[in-house]
């Protein structure tokens, strides 16, 4: 029901940011996700960052999946 893709924060100006999604830049609003830093990834939905993407969790998930797939 809701498309959302991860983008990397490159630049922050007040409540707006530039996010890199696969090499193109999109201006997004940080109104819903104010505590992000440059270099972090956020989920983008309808022009807004709606949540940070947790890199550590992602790595752990993948490691778990890999172990599962191998057994």
């Amino acid at each position: 029901m809701c498309l959302s893709v991860p983008g990397k924060i490159l630049k922050i100006e007040k409540s707006r940011a530039h996010a890199d999604v696969g090499g193109f830049l999109r201006e997004i609003s940080l109104d819903l996700c104010p505590n992000v830093s440059i270099g972090e990834y956020v989920l983008i939905h309808a022009g807004f960052a709606i949540q940070k993407v947790d890199e550590k969790e992602a790595e752990e998930s993948l490691a778990l999946l890999l172990r599962m797939a191998e057994t």
């Binding site: 498309l3 999604v21 696969g22 090499g23």
Partner: peptide, 11 residues
């Protein structure tokens, strides 16, 4: 291309 894929995912 990555950028085309990115925009496609987004929109």
């Amino acid at each position: 291309r990555e950028s085309v894929k990115g925009i496609c995912e987004l929109l």
